[in-house]
Amino acid sequence: MPTTKTPGEKTLREGSAQKRAAILAAARELFLAEGFDRSSVDAVAARAKVSKRTVYDYFGDKRTLLQAVVDGVGQSLITTVRRTLDDTLTALPGAAGLEDALITFSMRIATDMLGSAEYATLQRLVRAESGHLPHRGYNSMADTPDEALAERFAALAEAGLLHVPDPRLAADQFIALAFGVPLDRLGSANAVEDPRVRPLVTEGVRTFLRAYRTT
């Protein structure tokens, strides 16, 4: 049976995907409702309908289980980003449609991702349980969304629509312009909850294009 190791080199079972999913779902519900410290492994096992030994065999300890929950939510959000990129920026729009395509992408992120229950869950867990995660400011999404956007900008540059000598830098600047300004000014870039996000996102996209558009 496949195994993995925790940072302390304890061998863990991969085990049944169904049981792993049940444990993660139970842990997520309890960590959100009760907090990490008040959620016992016994309670997680009972809610997941598995033995306590199974929880330990699969995850090693409660901290590793918390990290697995946070990482799982992060992966779900990365999937949303990639799907949104595929839906909005894969079929190259041409120079005339580039602004609309980038605004559509940005607003989809501001609604489908930043306005989602998954994102709210990630924010709550990271804020509330930062002391139990591997390090302060732990980010389960890491650089993956930025790199995915950089790849798409490189494709737009190949098509002659953008001039991006450094696609990753362009991605970082796009994110800062489209989402950083709403975050700084409003405290959120969630377009579902705040209609003031859209005009700020739109102007961020236009500022980016003034710097990077080729035509």
Results as ranks from 00 to 15, higher is better:
L149C: 11
E9M: 15
A45E: 01
F174A: 13
L12D: 00
Y56A: 12
D71Y: 13
G15R: 03
L24R: 14
L102C: 11
K49R: 08
R124E: 13
A150N: 03
D143K: 03
S130C: 08
A159K: 06
N139F: 11
D100Q: 13
L133M: 06
V201G: 05
V81I: 14
E129P: 10
A176W: 11
R28K: 10
R185K: 12
T202N: 10
A101E: 01
E203K: 07
L209G: 02
V73S: 15
P93S: 06
R210V: 07
M113G: 14
T202V: 11
L30D: 06
L24W: 14
R185F: 11
P167V: 00
G8A: 15
Y58H: 13
T84P: 04
L162N: 04
V164P: 01
V81H: 13
E129V: 08
M107T: 01
L200V: 10
A117T: 09
E147M: 06
V69R: 12
D87P: 03
P145R: 04
L133R: 04
H135I: 06
A154Y: 02
V181R: 07
S40V: 01
H135R: 09
K10R: 15
G60W: 10
R210Y: 06
G97H: 05
Q18H: 15
H163W: 02
R196V: 05
A21S: 15
I109K: 04
S116W: 00
Y119I: 11
V205R: 14
T64S: 15
